[in-house]
């Protein structure tokens, strides 16, 4: 467990040692602002909630999170540091988890820095702050899901651009799985439970209910299991492909 902490600190520090973390945070905040106020019509809706803010997060994460995740393992392989890291007396699971948690913490920091919008909505009206807190946590869990996919894709290749494209594609699939556009396209003869099962695998199904304040432990459990599965897959891929 101590090793996990040491790797976590090194990785998180690594993000802030380069401009990467700052660029990520600034662009995340600016894009969030544009989406919420211009496209989302935050003022026009006249409602004291953060729904326009959160409903764009899946689409924002779709491009921002793979950008962080793409270097997780691809760079280690490219520079050869993976050989250094994995011959230190640590477990592979500690390395996989430590790196993931550092990237997840970075998205958490970026998300936390959107707090002015929470202050704004409290100043303008009287929102349900419980719903907002739940939505923040839900959003962070969803970012974790994107990152876990990215960790696995990054382990597949030495090339971080390929890792980025693969991650975006797979994340996109999981986002649209739960979207009404796709679900309505199912022909009527397909049994409802199949459509439901399909939708249940998508991000939107779970995130929408969380962001509307429906606190169901199963939605959080979905993201937790999702993250664990993809991280486990990352470890397997690294074990198989580290020699290449």
């Amino acid at each position: 467990m101590q090793n996990l902490g040491i790797i976590f600190r090194r990785e998180l520090f690594g993000y802030f040692a380069t401009p990467l973390a700052y660029i990520f945070i600034v662009i995340f905040l600016i894009t969030n602002g544009i989406f919420t106020f211009d496209i989302g019509g935050f003022y026009l809706r006249g409602q004291a909630d953060l729904l326009p803010f959160f409903s764009f997060h899946p689409w924002l994460y779709l491009f921002m999170v793979p950008a962080i995740a793409m270097t997780l393992w691809a760079d280690e392989r490219k520079t050869g540091t993976i050989e250094l890291l994995l011959t230190l007396p640590i477990k592979l699971s500690e390395a996989v988890l430590g790196k993931f948690l550092a990237a997840w913490a970075l998205t958490g920091i970026a998300l936390a820095l959107t707090f002015p919008i929470w202050i704004t909505v409290n100043y303008l009206g009287d929102p349900d702050n419980g719903v907002i807190v739940a939505a923040y946590i839900g959003s962070w869990f969803m970012a974790g899901g994107f990152l876990a996919i990215g960790s696995c894709m990054s382990a597949c290749t030495k090339n971080s651009v390929i890792a980025f494209i693969l991650t975006v594609s797979i994340c996109f699939t999981f986002v649209i799985m739960g979207s009404p556009i796709l679900l309505n396209a199912f022909p009527g003869w397909i049994p409802q439970f199949v459509v439901d099962a399909f939708a249940a695998l998508g991000f939107l199904t779970h995130f929408d209910s969380i962001s509307k304040g429906v606190l169901d432990i199963r939605d959080f459990l979905y993201f937790a299991v999702f993250i664990a599965t993809w991280l486990f897959a990352s470890a397997i891929v690294i074990e198989i492909r580290k020699a290449n």
């Binding site: 090194r10 520090f13 050869g80 250094l84 007396p89």
Partner: peptide, 25 residues
Amino acid sequence: YLPEGAPSYGDMTTLEFLNFIAEIR
């Protein structure tokens, strides 16, 4: 172990890198 090509984390300073290794050792 010194792997071929002596890989290390390029964005760290020498001191930071060695501190990291000392901790993990």
